[in-house]
């Protein structure tokens, strides 16, 4: 195991053993190694320091480093598990694992709750939902009157905010998602089933036979 892992650890700060990462995630060891090929390419796209900064993250996602977006920023913050302003390989694999088709449903619910709880208070507040709606309208070029936005918010909070305290807590979110399973569609990436074929070069560096 030694050579690949120790070399990668020197070049890639925060690099974790693929066998351990596989045991903690929905990925096999080969899939973790294939993800490392993707990670190497993203983390060297602007600054070759073995870490993914926000610019590299956005460049990989949108092919455009200048795009400033509320949702992209929030996803970066959630991938930055250790809150260092950069994403290391362990963060990358553990975060992407939530999007694996085989990842536990509860993990997807938790991640989506954190995603929409913009300020991390443990509640999705009406003001946050309005902010996200406005961001979506700006991004899509869709125009809705403020009155219509308020009607959508009223309807959403009537359904989701069961105790009607003006904010959605974790348990209310779990119930709401159960009633509206399509809300979790963004939490599954079918591509993650095929990463070993998307990044076949991992076999040249692989340390395991699977």
């Amino acid at each position: 195991m030694g050579c690949f892992h120790s070399t990668a650890s020197k070049q890639f700060p925060g690099h974790e053993d693929p066998v351990i990462l596989a045991s903690q995630t929905a990925f096999s060891v080969s899939e973790v190694e294939a993800l490392f090929e993707l990670y190497k390419s993203i983390s060297s796209s602007v600054i070759d320091d073995g870490l993914i900064n926000k610019e590299e993250f956005q460049l990989a996602l949108f092919k455009n480093r200048k795009k400033e977006n509320l949702f992209a920023n929030r996803i970066f913050e959630l991938f930055d598990v250790k809150k260092k302003g950069v994403i290391d390989f362990g963060d990358f694999v553990k975060s992407l694992s939530v999007f694996h088709p085989n990842a536990p449903h509860e993990d997807k619910i938790d991640f989506s709750f954190k995603l929409y709880d913009l300020d991390g208070t443990g509640f999705i507040e009406r003001q946050e939902v309005k902010q996200m709606l406005i961001a979506l309208l700006c991004e899509s070029g869709m125009k809705l009157a403020d009155e219509t936005v308020e009607i959508i918010l009223d309807k959403t909070f009537l359904e989701a905010d069961v105790n009607q305290d003006g904010k959605i807590d974790k348990s209310e979110w779990q119930n709401f998602v159960r009633q509206n399973p399509s809300l979790l569609k963004i939490m599954t990436l079918p591509y993650l089933r095929d990463i070993t074929t998307t990044f076949p070069s991992f076999v040249f560096h692989s340390e395991v036979d699977e």
Partner: peptide
């Protein structure tokens, strides 16, 4: 009622339409 009326859609269904919440860009070369 118009079935396409946005008032029949909940806020999170609309928010989920954001292309910035789609991580498939990582895998598109």
């Amino acid at each position: 009622k118009n079935p396409d009326s946005p008032t029949l859609i909940n806020a999170f269904q609309l928010i989920g339409m954001s292309s910035c919440l789609d991580l498939s860009g990582f895998f598109e070369k």
